[in-house]
Each structure stands twice: as structure tokens, then as C-alpha cells.
């Protein structure tokens, strides 16, 4: 009798395991959007053999502003309000970094150094640059602000303006300090446990599955904003490979060596509601630049380019008028 019960249990388990296949986590377009590789209608540019999702707005002969998203592994959907600057006689360039957003997915080896991001940005600028006299402004958010600064650190003479929104830091120490503040660990917290509980439901090694899991991991993530910010598709490999790169090579995360040569004023923004950042950290990070316009953006958290745009935009307009 008892063996019958066990046999019945085994049969139930077998039947469940032999259910007809429905969807697959690794199927293109089912859980995460297609990238430029699978959908040729998505606007793209070829940078060093990698297809990047990219769009522009405005007259290509106007001063160029290159919008650089956060992450690593984020995308520019949450920064699209910058396209309003096309109405202010700017040529606005958006691109998703390699392995992120709707850009081509690449493996870990494509993130061998911070320099690949800097070179990629340089190639994007040169791809769209109308002529050598065209003025170039960089606008970065979070990791994108760190990348913009890393670029200026190497190419200060090529950049005519710099707009930064809550860069984690310009050294790995500063970045670690911010990261430790921005996510206080709460063992008994619903969100903390939600973050790890999904691992038992889904495993995978392909980009579709890992990017989907990364999207789910944003549930409830809060850095002061009360709502979810828009995004297309997270780049999971991009994020984990970049974190590993930073942890293995903290010296590569120091972007400060030549910043004192950057004579242009920097517009540096931090948010009112991201308490992990604040004035003290903003002053400490921005201190690497000789000339800084430090601004607190009211009524938003870390996602300043999206939730704080109403207050950020006038500051950007005035800044551009001043420097160009």
C-alpha cells in the first residue's frame, strides 16, 4: 500500500515533468525585447564590429550632445527627455552601450577593460561628428556620468561641456562608498528576499533568460524614486562582467588624474530624494573638477533624467547657453 503511494507520487512528478512544451525562457522576444541583431528595423550603428542601438534628434550640424546611460547594463530609454534639446538647436545623440539595452549582446570577453567603454564612446562621437569644429557636450547619468568623466579625463580638449547626474564616484573607493549607502541590507525585508527568491524558479545561461531575470530584480528597487523608471532591456552579462572588471581592477576605476585640466564648467546634479547620495557625496565627487555648478534637483531620486526632468531641463538650457 505504501509503495503504491510512493509510486503514485513518482507518476505525478513524471507527468509534470513530461508536460507538453509551451514557451521557453530563452526564446527571442517572448520575455525581453529583440535587439538590433534580431530586428533590423531598430535604428543602429556599427561601432568596432558591434551593432549599437542608436538614434539622433535635431540638425546634425548643430552642437552635439551625447547622452550616456547608466548601469552598466542599463539603456537610454529613461533619458529620452533629453531629445527636447533638439528644439534648443542641439544635435542629440543616444546610444545603448555594448551588451545593453537593444544593442548587440556580447560575451564577457568584450568587457575586458574600462577602456572599451571609452573607446566605444569615442567611436560614437566620431561616427556622428559633422566636422572637427562641431562642439561636443557629454551628458551622463549614474554609470554614464562616470563614463563621461572617464572620457574627459583622457580627452579634455575634445569636450566643450559636461553634464553629470549622480555619478557613483570617480574612484572605486567613492563608488563603493555610494553603493554601500544606497542599498542597506535588511535580512528580514520583503524586497531583499524577493531579490534572491526567483533563483529557484529560473536558471539559464543565455542572454534572454539572464536579461529577463535582471529585469525582475529591479522590482521594488528604490533609490528615492517612488515609481519604476522606463527601460528597454537590461544587459545582465554586461552588468556582471563590468562589476567583476571593477572589483578585479579598481585602479581602472580612477578617472581623476587629468580632470584638473578640464577648464570648462561642469553641471553636476544630485537628487533631493536619493538620501544615499546627498550634498556631502556630491561635493566630494565633484571636487575633482576645477569649475563646478552643483545643483540639487528637487522632487526626484536617482533617476534625475526621467523623474527630475522638469527641474533639470531649465538648468541644462541655461548651462548650454553659458558654455556654447
Amino acid at each position: 500500500m505504501n509503495y503504491k503511494i510512493l509510486s503514485l507520487l513518482a507518476i505525478v512528478v513524471f507527468l509534470i515533468s513530461s508536460c507538453e512544451k509551451e514557451n521557453r525562457f530563452d526564446e527571442n522576444g517572448v520575455l525581453v525585447p529583440l535587439t538590433v541583431i534580431e530586428d533590423s528595423t531598430i535604428p543602429s550603428i556599427n561601432i568596432d564590429g558591434i551593432l549599437l542601438h542608436s538614434e539622433t534628434y535635431g540638425d546634425p550640424t548643430n552642437p552635439m550632445i551625447v547622452v550616456i546611460h547608466g548601469g552598466p547594463g542599463g539603456d537610454y530609454r529613461g533619458m529620452l527627455k533629453f531629445k527636447e534639446l533638439a528644439n534648443d538647436d542641439m544635435f542629440v545623440v543616444f546610444y545603448d552601450q555594448r551588451g545593453a539595452g537593444l544593442s548587440e549582446r556580447v560575451d564577457e570577453s568584450a568587457f575586458g577593460s574600462v577602456q572599451v567603454y571609452i573607446d566605444e564612446l569615442d567611436a560614437v562621437i566620431n561616427h556622428y561628428r559633422h566636422d572637427s569644429d562641431q562642439q561636443i557636450v557629454l551628458a551622463g547619468h549614474s554609470w554614464g556620468a562616470m563614463l563621461a568623466t572617464a572620457y574627459v579625463n583622457q580627452n579634455s580638449n575634445n569636450i566643450d561641456g559636461l553634464i553629470l547626474a549622480e555619478p557613483g564616484g570617480f574612484t572605486w573607493g567613492q563608488t563603493e562608498t555610494y553603493l554601500s549607502k544606497s542599498r542597506e541590507l535588511k535580512l528580514f525585508d520583503e524586497l531583499t528576499n524577493d531579490f534572491v527568491y526567483q533563483d529557484q524558479f529560473i536558471t539559464g545561461s543565455d542572454h534572454n533568460t539572464l536579461d529577463y531575470k535582471m529585469a525582475l530584480s529591479t522590482a521594488g528597487v528604490s533609490t528615492g524614486d517612488m515609481d519604476f523608471f522606463p527601460y528597454w532591456r537590461f544587459g545582465a552579462i554586461c552588468l556582471t562582467a563590468s562589476i567583476q572588471l571593477a572589483m578585479d581592477n579598481p585602479d581602472q576605476m580612477d578617472f581623476t588624474a587629468n580632470l584638473n585640466n578640464f577648464g570648462t564648467k561642469v553641471l553636476f546634479a544630485y537628487s533631493e530624494l536619493n538620501t544615499a547620495y546627498g550634498l556631502e557625496h556630491a561635493e566630494k565627487v565633484s571636487d575633482a573638477f576645477p569649475l563646478v555648478q552643483l545643483e540639487k534637483i528637487q522632487d526626484c531620486g536617482h533617476e534625475i533624467p526621467h523623474f527630475g526632468w522638469q527641474n533639470f531641463y531649465p538648468l541644462i538650457q541655461n548651462y548650454l547657453i553659458e558654455i556654447l
Binding site: G73, G74, S142, L179, S182, R183, T218, V221
Partner: peptide, 11 residues
């Protein structure tokens, strides 16, 4: 996104 990074780091 920064929160994802720190959560990954904070094992």
C-alpha cells in the same frame, strides 16, 4: 541600477 550592483556585491 546602482542598487542591483550593490546587492550583487553585498553577499
Amino acid at each position: 541600477m546602482k542598487n542591483i550592483i550593490i546587492t550583487l556585491i553585498t553577499i
